[in-house]
Each structure stands twice: as C-alpha cells, then as structure tokens.
Design a binder for these strands. Structure first.
Length: 953
RNA sequence: GCUGGGGUGGCGGAAUGGCAGACGCUCUAGCCUUAGGAGCUAGUGGGAGAAAUCCCGUGGGAGUUCAAGUCUCCCCCCCAGCACCA
C-alpha cells in the first residue's frame, strides 16, 4: 500500500492517546456504584489465527462510536471485550497446523488483543475474559449443573444430527438446510444418546418475550419462524384391523391445525419413526411394511426431505375410524410425515392439503371436498375497491370472471377467460367496448404476461370526464359457459353496464356458483373457507368450525412448536468437559460437586476427534476414572464437552465480575447492569447464540440466580441491532477469492482514526457496504483539513454563519449517533467544516471545540490531540456532549421553491419569516413564473411552510 | 412455497408526501509543483442546445394527491431466514 498525504503524525498521536487513556483508566466505569449505567455490549469474537476480520473491526468501532457518544452524554458506559476461544473452529485450525489448541489460543489471544487495542476502542480491559480460561468455564460447568438439577438438562437417545467432517453431533440450530453450519458438510442422522437442554419448555416464553424487547426485526422474525408456533387440535382415531388385537383397543393421536377439515380426512399417515415404535411394542406388520420402515429410517435426512421428491409409502394393513364420519379409513406409513413433530402421525385431507393430495393421487386414495373458498367477497377498504375486487369462479367450466372497478375513472377492467385461444374473444370484446364507449386507449395484456392467473386483462386509461362508475360484462361465445350466460342474437358478447351497487348485488347472486375447479386442474384449495359435505357443520366458516368439530369428536386444543431441545454435547476436545458422572452402583447420572469445579480439561497430546461417537477424552482413563459424588464408589466421567454456544450464552454476566471466585456473577452488579442496554452483532446468530442467550437467562431467572428484567420474564438484552456485511468489490470476503482485507495494513498506512471514519461512513451500521481503498483516502483528507483548521480559529466569537453551521451539525450528529447512522453524521461534520472553511468565515475556538467533540467518538485520537492543542487539560472523552440553540438551526433566509402544476419552475431566496401572502405575491409576480401562467387564472395555490408555492392552473 | 428486508448516477450511499442524487469516492479540465501517487479550483444522472433554458429520469404497471423515490394495489428481480412442521 502506498503512502498517502498526511498533515500530522497519526502514529505518534494515536499511540500517545491510547497509552494515556489506559493510564487514566478512562474507560473503567464504577461497576458497583454507577450513576447512569449503560451496558454497551458487542459480540465477542472467536480468535482466529488470521486475526481480526475487517467486518469485526467495523462492528466493534461502530459499537465504540455509540458507546463514546453515550459516555459524553453522561452515562457510565461499560464496554467489555473478551474472546470466545473454545470451540470447533479454533480446534480445527489447531489440528490443521498441528499445534495444540491451548498453545494456539495463547498465541492468537495476544494478536487479537493487540489489534483490538490498536483500533482505539474504549474497552474496559480490566474485565476481559476468555471462555477457555478455567476460571471462566468453571462457571459454564456450574451452569450446566444448575440446569441439570432443575431438570432442564437431560440425557436421551434420539436420532441426532451428525457432521461427518467435524465428527460430532450438532444442535438443530447448527444445521442450515441440511448442512453443517460451520463447514457446509451434509449432516447425517445418527441414533445416539446425548445431553439436551430443555429449551422447548421455554418455547412459549421465548416467543412472547420477543414482543417486549427492542430487537432488530430480522432477528425476531427468524426466531418466530424457528420457534414455529402452531395452534391446532389433538384428535384421536381408534384403530381396527390390527392382527391379534381387538378393534378399538388401540388408537392413534394426530395433531392438526385444520380440525375443520376432519370430514375430509380419507386416510391416516404415520411416520416411519412411529411405525418403528409400533413394531417395537409388538405390531406384527407385513414384510413389505417392515422393509419400507427399515429403508426410510436408514436414509439421510437430506434425501428424505428433498423437495419435489416423489412421495413414497406403504399401506400398513391397519384401519382407523374417522371420528367425525365414523367411516373406516386406511392407515399408511410414509416418510413425508416427520417423526419428531406433533405425534408423528397425521390425518390426511387430500382435498385441502397439497402433500396429502399428491400422496392420494399417486396411491389412488379417495378425496373428499369439505371446504369451499369464500370468493366474490368485497374487500372492505376503499383502496382495495379500486383494484381487483373479486375473482368469481364458474364451477362447471373452470372459469374465472375477474371483476375490477375503481374510482370515477374506472381503473383496470378484467375480463375472464381460461384458455389461450380466448384471446380472440377478448379482442372482440375489446373492440366492442371501444365502439360502445369511444374509449380508444384500452390496452390488451396477453395471458402469458399474467403468469399466475387464468384471466385476461385490459387496463383502461379513460378520459377524466367519463361518468361511469363501474363496468361489468361477461365473456360470451364460449360454449362451455354458454348455458350460464346471456348473449345477443348474433351470439356475441353482451356487455352490461351496471352501477357499483348493481355489481355488488350480482356478485352476491353468483356466489352459489362458486366451486372447485382446482381439484380437476390438479390444484387444491388449502385456505380457509366455508364447510361443505361436513354434516351439521355445512355452511360454517373454517374458523368457527375448527373448535366446534374438535369439541364434537372430543379432541383437545393444543399448541405445538417446531423448536427442538438444544443438543448440548459434542464429541470433541476443545470445550468445557460436561461436569457429569455416571455411577454404575447408583445407576444414574450425578453432577460433579460444585466445590470440585472446574473439571479441568486435561492437556492431552491426542486431542483430535476419534470419529466415533466417543470424544477424545474417552481415551484417557486418568481423566474419566473418578469416584461417585454420591456413594463414593468407582464411577466414570462424561467425556463429551459442551457446545461452544453454552460458553457465549452467559458471558455478558461474567464480564460484570470476571474474577469472582464465589459466584458466577455478582448479583448486585447484575441487577445494576442487566439487562444489557445495547447489543450489536451479526444476524447469522439469530437462531443460535441469540436464542440460547435468552433461554439461559430465563432459566437463571426462574432458578433465582439473577434478579433483573422481571417484567419481561428474564430477557437479558433490551436492544439488539444486527450489523451489515462488508464486501470487497461486491463479493463476500474469503480466502479462496483472495479478497480478504487485513485491518493491520490499513491501520499502518492510514491510522485508526481514518479507518474508523471510513468504516463508519460506508453505510449505516445496520447495513453492509463495499470496502474501497480509495474511500478511506477521503477520510484522511477530511481529518487533515480538520487538523489544519486549528490554525484558523480566533479566541472570540464565531460569525453568525459559522454559529449556525455548528448548531446544525450538533443537532444532526446527535440524532444520527443515537440511530447508528454514522454515515450521515460524518456527512454533517463535512458540511460544517466546508462552511467553516469558506472564505471570510470567522470561527471561534469554542465552536471548533464543539466540532471536535462531535468528531471525538468517530476519530477519538486526533480529536483528543486537537482538544489539547486548543488548551484543554482533560481528555475530550470526559467532556460533555455539546448542546445547541434550536433557533440557530433554522436559516435566516430560505430557498422558496415555486411550482406550476407541481413542476418546479423557479427558486428564489426569501427571508425565513416570509408570510403566506408575501409568498403568493412573490410567486405570481415572478417574470419566470408569468411565462408559465400565461395569463390564466390559477385554480388553486398551495403553500407549504416557508419553502414551497404550487400554482395550480 | 412461506416470512422478513431491499431495488435510487460509474461506485458507497442522502432525501418529516414538497428542488431526487446530500456527503464522499471515481473521472475530466485547469492551477501549483523538479515531479505527482500530494494539494488547490471548477465540473461530473441521461438527452437537446452556443446559451438562457427545456425534456426525461428512483425495477415495471396502475391508483390516490395540487404534488409520489416516499402512500395504496398488482407484477418482476435481489438478499436473508424457514421449508413435506400437517
């Protein structure tokens, strides 16, 4: 990288101030007695060997800018930093370079802390922590034990995700589209006994809590999706035809969100997992059924769930009784039904569920229609009335008539049809309308342009003076619809002209014609509607029928969640050993005594994963051989370690008191500082870390270990914002692309202040941006101009223009800092400096100092240096954020925009105090405007504030 | 497919319904300089014109409004999350 102009020696200055800040302990708040605590948290990085990523630098400095702003507003800002050093990422790299993870960690730690120091952030270094420090993970283990004692940690054998490359099990949250979140390898299913956290117990609270916290919408949406709440019913189907079993002795429960379609249930489907369970308890299934079960359970999850895969299944030989119809229906086994959700069995309603329909078609199972779509309904609000208002279906002929009308102008007019050759008919209709109405601007839109709809359309651009308020006509001349439609003696289309009310009436009348063309076409209707073929429930709406039918068949209302329990154990080395002990005599799992924590991770040579379902520690008897904490007999330690996401699920609490040997957190500090006021990090953690951290906090809250955020049930973080992604030349940075930015290079050449400014200027923090070398030079220029400007100030007062410029800047920067819009804050500073530098401006020292204060969060080193050069003794970061006089933010003279018919025609400079009357006069007397008015009498003159006059002719 | 978030110059991005493109980068011309990879000045959405000035422009189509990047409806495209969850 080339050297670049610089007005000052940033290397010297930046070093000087960083040292002084540390020496003065400027960024260490009083954790016990803060006046206005503000916990400014950023996601701690995992220390990769490559060092800090430029995206990390941007986020950290962005958070720092916000924190420095808050500090100058009088808050006691706590901004700690640490390293999330445990985990597979670090371990894999250690394996790759053949170095022990612990040794590697110490090396990368040093490099990371150096870089974090050099970006000039106001970190509270006294409270730094590393998750691999035994003093830290002792409490991670302690946390595990508390959850175990509370029944929130348990062991079970289950089909779990296994990454064949990372050689460990994974939590559901770590499987992205069937692939390992870390390495992208396809995940397979293994039947293993593992440790789980009962996060599902908190599903409802995790969902409801989202309404009480101020979090980025992307995250709350992702979490809502992930938790996946469904409200439905549990319905019991008695079974018949089981060999050797009395009819009705056994039954199967299904979960459905559509009990209103129960009358349409023509078969049941159970998952292979459920079928396997039945086999295990003695079901004598036919051979082909056994074969199918074995086959589908052996396959990869990915293959089984592949979209578009043809459905497979087999008839079980068993029947069930539909409790609504009392009819006997077959029970099938098919792998499109998931074992892990609901009851592992479904009621199939082929007429109203796409998957069931597909299955029924393939195996020729009966289909019963029980829901009629509610069509022809007029949408209530005025805006909707102006576009499409109805799609009316013709039951017998699979036709749509789509109606549309709008305002007095008529809007868009649609005409129904259902086949390509109908275009001729439309053309005829078009011609007729043109003849009848004289509208020549009717536009024909071909069917192919209306991808998803089986209708043709015109848009009508009619003249404004037409009085017709609505149009209605029908397509004629198609023998398939002939019988329902009138036509004239020539057999052509008849066009009926109706008022809006008449159209409404007609549509009401036609509702009885609505039907089910979709079934025949291979489409099904899965929405809500009106019940039919459902006995006493006919004519009822779906919504109403749902619970009435559930009640009738003695079903039970139930809420299901898609969220699964958090699989916490990992068959790896570089993590906290799970502090559990299996005692052969007691025949149970017992937690390690708390006074024996931490269970130290031994320094073993062979730390690589074994590739079996046993962790590396299982090869070290000196580790796992122990005594039972209960009976004192011989016992065996758990050799798995816990998921790295457990380490990060509570670190914000440990920061408050990282050297506490008695408690995992000081309770009083937690009450003072939590919930975290502001948290900023990556959106990629939306259903990983950010869900776990909430769960753990809620559990700690319920167990009485922390005592904050009672009103939200223990939500740990008030505000969360996700930062954007930085690209280089439009592409994601990656080693393989060779477009990775190393922050060190830029720190060396341009300095921390310029780099910080540039990263902040790129885009709002919550959005991404593209890193450009040239962009950073703009920041160097700007800072150099600020540097040089110190020579230009006087001891006295600024002139009025300069005074107004700084007042405006203070206002704008204050607002933008709060909303993390650092890009526009910097822009406001540039505008202010541009004004200061104008020829003839007089700028007082005081105003330059205020300017430096605005700059201080962004470029903390040079701001402090200049502040000192202007005679200040104390650091600028201890000073109070400047205030401004609102009156000064308004200009004395303003630019008045004069429009004619909404088009800008002239701008004149007027006094800000101008009255409406004067504005009108000035506008009408302008020579330029007179040209446009051309002697006409204005119909209307619109005046907006003191900035705009619009003359309407 | 579902749920969010987007689509504005050559680029990053600005715009409480009221001058679209702030601020910066890039580029062009000129100045300064032994030199320029520094700095300074001016210009930089497209089209027409010698110029004043005019026309067109915020993914596409309609609508509301005196006035739409902004509000409403339909469509297209991109990004993220979920995805056979009954």
């Amino acid at each position: 990288m080339k050297e670049f102009m610089k007005a000052y020696d940033f290397k010297k200055i930046e070093k000087k101030w960083r040292e002084r800040w540390l020496q003065d302990r400027l960024y260490e708040p009083d954790l016990d007695n803060p006046k206005k605590p503000f916990y400014n948290l950023m996601m701690f990085p995992y220390p990769s060997a490559e060092g800090l990523h430029i995206g990390g630098v941007r986020t950290f400095t962005g958070v720092d800018i916000y924190g420095r702003f808050k500090r100058m507003q009088g808050h006691d800002v706590f901004q700690p930093m640490g390293l999330d050093g445990f985990g597979i990422n670090s371990e894999n790299y250690a394996i790759k370079i053949g170095e022990h993870p612990k040794k590697l960690a110490l090396r990368t730690e040093e490099n990371f802390y150096r870089q974090l120091h050099e970006i000039g952030n106001a970190f509270a270094w006294d409270e730094k922590l590393e998750t691999y420090d035994p003093e830290y993970y002792r409490w991670t283990q302690w946390l595990f034990i508390q959850l175990f004692k509370a029944g929130l940690a348990y062991r079970k054998k289950a089909s779990v995700n296994w990454c064949p490359k990372c050689l460990t099990v994974l939590a559901n949250e770590q499987v992205i589209a069937g692939k390992c979140e870390r390495c992208g390898t396809e995940v397979i299913q293994k039947e293993l006994e593992q440790w789980f956290f009962k996060i599902t117990k908190y599903a409802g609270r995790l969902l409801d809590g989202l309404d009480h916290i101020d979090w980025d919408g992307r995250i709350t949406t992702a979490q809502r999706n992930w938790i996946g709440k469904s409200e439905g019913a549990l319905i019991t189907f008695p079974l018949t035809g089981i060999p050797g079993q009395e009819d009705g002795k056994h039954s199967v429960d299904v979960f459905t969100t559509r009990p209103d379609t129960l009358f349409g249930t023509t078969f049941l489907v159970i998952s292979p997992e459920t079928a396997k369970f039945w086999l295990d308890i003695g079901w004598q299934a036919p051979d082909e059924v056994r074969a199918y079960i074995t086959k589908s359970l052996g396959g990869k999850e990915e293959e089984r769930l592949a979209l578009g895969k043809e459905k497979t299944g087999v008839f079980s030989g068993i029947y069930a009784i539909n409790p609504a119809t009392d009819k006997q229906i077959p029970v099938w086994v098919a792998d499109y039904v998931l074992g892990g959700y609901g009851t592992g069995a479904i009621m199939a309603v082929p007429a109203h569920d796409e998957r069931d329909f597909e299955f029924a078609k393939k195996f020729e199972l009966p289909i019963a229609l029980v829901i009629e779509p509610e069509t022809g309904k007029i949408m209530p609000d005025e805006q909707h009335r102006r576009s499409i208002v109805a799609i009316v279906e013709d039951p017998k002929h699979k036709k749509f008539l789509t109606l549309n009308w709008g305002s007095k102008l008529g809007g868009t007019l649609f005409i129904g049809g259902g086949r390509e050759e109908g275009e001729d008919e439309v053309a005829t209709a078009l011609r007729e309308i043109q003849e009848e109405t004289g509208y020549t601007q009717l536009e024909f839109v071909a069917k192919s342009e209306l991808m998803h709809h089986h209708y043709f359309a015109f848009s009508k651009n009619v003249a404004r003076n037409i009085e017709v308020t609505s149009l209605y006509f029908r397509l004629k001349g198609d023998e398939r619809v002939e019988e329902n439609l009138q036509h004239d003696e020539k057999g052509n289309f008849t066009i009926e002209w109706l008022t809006k009310d008449e159209v409404l009436q007609k549509m009401e009348d036609e509702n009885h014609l609505l039907g089910f063309r979709r079934l025949v076409l291979g489409e099904i209707y899965s929405g809500d509607g009106i019940l039919t073929n459902s006995g006493e429930f006919d004519g009822m709406s779906s919504r109403e029928a749902k619970w009435k039918i559930t009640e009738k068949v003695k079903g039970k209302q139930q809420t299901n969640y898609r969220l699964r329990d958090w699989l916490i154990s990992r068959q790896r080395y570089w993590g906290p050993p799970i502090p559990m002990i299996w005692c052969d005599s007691c025949k149970e799992w017992i937690s390690e005594k708390e006074e024996n924590l931490p269970v130290l991770l031994p320094d073993v040579k062979e730390f690589r994963p074994t590739g079996t379902d046993k962790a590396p520690l299982a090869n070290f008897p000196e580790f796992y051989e122990t005594t039972c904490p209960k009976c004192g007999g011989k016992a065996r330690r758990e050799t798995d370690v816990s998921d790295t996401f457990l380490d990060s699920a509570w670190y914000y609490l440990r920061y408050l008191d990282p050297s506490n040997k008695k408690e995992f957190v000081s309770e009083s500090r937690a009450r003072t500082w939590a919930p975290v006021h502001s948290y900023i990090g990556g959106a990629e953690h939306s259903v990983l870390h950010l869900l776990y951290v909430r769960f753990v906090s809620m559990a700690l809250h319920d167990l009485g270990f922390v005592d904050f955020a009672k009103e939200s049930g223990g939500e740990p973080i008030k505000q969360f914002r996700a930062h954007g992604l930085i690209t280089k030349d439009g592409a994601k940075m990656s080693k393989s692309r060779g477009n990775v930015i190393n922050p060190d290079d830029y720190l060396r050449v341009y300095g921390a202040d310029a780099l910080r400014m540039y990263l902040a200027f790129m885009a709002p923090l919550t959005e991404g941006g593209d890193f450009q070398d040239t962009g950073i030079r703009g920041m160097v220029r700007f800072l150099s101009r600020v540097w040089d400007f110190k020579e230009c100030v006087i001891d006295g007062e600024s002139d009025e223009i300069a005074e107004r410029a700084i007042a405006k800047a203070i206002k704008k920067v204050s607002e933008d800092m709060e909303s993390l819009q650092f890009n526009t804050a910097i822009s406001a500073l540039m505008i202010c400096l541009n004004t200061f530098e104008e020829g003839g401006r007089i700028v007082g020292k005081k105003d330059l100092k205020d300017f430096l204060k605005l700059l201080a969060p962004l470029a903390p080193h040079v701001a402090d240096e200049l502040f000192e050069m202007l005679g200040e003794k104390d650091s600028i970061h201890k000073s109070m954020w400047p205030t401004y006089d609102e009156a000064l933010t308004h200009d004395v003279s303003v630019k008045l925009v004069i429009q004619v018919n909404g088009k800008m025609r002239e701008i004149i400079e007027v006094a800000a105090t101008i009255t409406e009357q004067e504005m009108k006069e000035r506008a009408l007397s302008s020579e330029q405007i007179k040209k446009y008015i051309n002697g006409q009498e204005p119909k209307n003159i619109i005046i907006v504030g003191n900035k705009l006059v619009n003359i309407v002719l």
